[in-house]
Amino acid sequence: METLIVQPKTKKQLLAVEAVLKALNVTFKKEKSYSPAFIDEIAKGEEDIKNGRLTRITDVQNIWESIL
């Protein structure tokens, strides 16, 4: 079969699409998507960790002194 990607703009649209799919006995799954900018930030953070660009906090009692 085929896969459809539906992108409702409002909660009302989402509920309507889900109701139609349920009424037609069509199986579906919901997945949350993240903005491309957020995904890029996560990738940059992971790259920083791989390259050792991070701050390690060993004394959680004085956390603010560790990062300032």
Rank of each mutant, 00 (worst) to 15 (best):
D48C: 06
A37P: 00
L14T: 04
R56M: 06
A37I: 13
A37H: 07
E18Q: 14
K22D: 13
A37G: 08
A16P: 01
V17D: 02
Q61S: 08
T27I: 09
M1E: 12
T10W: 05
K32P: 02
L4P: 01
T10H: 06
K32Y: 12
F28K: 08
K9S: 11
K32L: 13
I39T: 11
K12I: 06
L21E: 02
N25E: 15
N25P: 00
D59L: 01
E18S: 06
K32I: 10
R53S: 07
E47Q: 15
F38M: 08
Y34E: 09
L14Q: 05
K29H: 11
L21H: 04
N62A: 13
M1C: 10
R56A: 11
P8Y: 03
A23Q: 14
T58K: 04
A37R: 13
M1G: 15
V60R: 07
N51D: 04
N51W: 00
V6Y: 04
M1F: 09
V60I: 08
T55Q: 14
I63R: 06
M1A: 15
I57Y: 04
K9H: 12
P8E: 04
D59T: 01
L24F: 07
E65I: 04
E47R: 11
K44T: 11
V6M: 09
D59F: 00
I49Y: 15
I57D: 03
N62V: 02
I49V: 15
I67G: 03
S66Y: 08
S33Y: 14
Q7M: 12
L21W: 02
E2N: 13
L24G: 10
T55P: 01
T27V: 13
K11D: 13
A16D: 13
P8N: 09
F28S: 07
S33N: 11
K9P: 09
I39N: 05
Y34N: 10
I63K: 05
L54R: 14
E46G: 06
I57M: 05
I42W: 01
S35P: 09
A19Y: 08
K29A: 07
K44R: 01
T58E: 03
R56N: 12
F38C: 00
E41D: 07
Q61C: 00
V6C: 07
E18V: 11
A43W: 02
V6G: 01
K50I: 05
I39P: 00
W64G: 06
K12G: 00
K50C: 00
L15S: 10
R53Y: 11
Q13D: 15
T58Q: 01
A19N: 14
Q7V: 14
K9Y: 14
S35L: 08
E2C: 03
K50W: 03
L15E: 15
P8Q: 05
T55I: 13
L68H: 08
W64T: 14
A23I: 03
T3D: 12
R53K: 15
I5M: 12
Q13V: 07
I63E: 03
P36R: 09
L54E: 12
K44G: 01
A23T: 09
Y34T: 08
K44L: 12
L15H: 07
